[in-house]
Simulated scan of single mutants.
Amino acid sequence: MFDPGPTAEVSYAAAPDGRWTLRFVRDLHHPPERVWRMLTEPGPLSRWAPFTADRDLGTPGPATLTMIDGDTAQPLAAEVLRAEPPSLLEYTWGEDLLRWELEPAGDVTRLTLWHTLADRDFVSKVAAGWHQCVRVMELDLDGTPHPPVRGQDALNYGWADLEAAYRKTLEL
Rank of each mutant, 00 (worst) to 15 (best):
L155C: 00
E33D: 15
E33K: 07
L172M: 08
T59M: 03
A83F: 03
D121T: 15
L39P: 11
R167L: 09
E95Y: 06
E90R: 14
P4R: 03
M67I: 15
V123D: 04
D69E: 13
R110C: 12
A164Q: 12
K168W: 05
S11L: 02
R26C: 07
V10T: 15
P6N: 06
S11N: 04
E138G: 13
V123A: 05
G106V: 11
R26V: 13
L39I: 09
P62I: 00
G106P: 10
L81V: 07
W20Q: 11
E103S: 14
A118F: 08
T59Q: 09
P60R: 06
L141F: 12
N156Q: 15
V80N: 03
L97H: 10
A160D: 15
E84D: 15
S46W: 03
T116F: 07
R135W: 08
D121N: 10
A15W: 00
E90M: 09
G5Q: 07
W48K: 06
L88E: 12
P145A: 07
L155M: 08
T66K: 03
W130S: 05
E103V: 15
V25D: 05
L45T: 04
W20G: 00
A128Y: 06
R110W: 11
R47S: 08
P75E: 09
A49H: 06
G58S: 05
G158A: 07
R23I: 13
D142K: 10
I68K: 09
E138R: 13
Q152V: 12
E41P: 01
Q152W: 12
W159M: 10
G5V: 06
L89S: 03
A128E: 05
Q74V: 15
P62K: 14
L89H: 04
A77T: 12
A77Q: 13
T21F: 02
D71N: 11
A154M: 14
D27W: 08
E163M: 06
R55E: 05
W114F: 15
R26I: 13
L57G: 01
A165L: 07
A160E: 15
A14E: 15
E84V: 13
L81A: 02
V80F: 05
V108A: 14
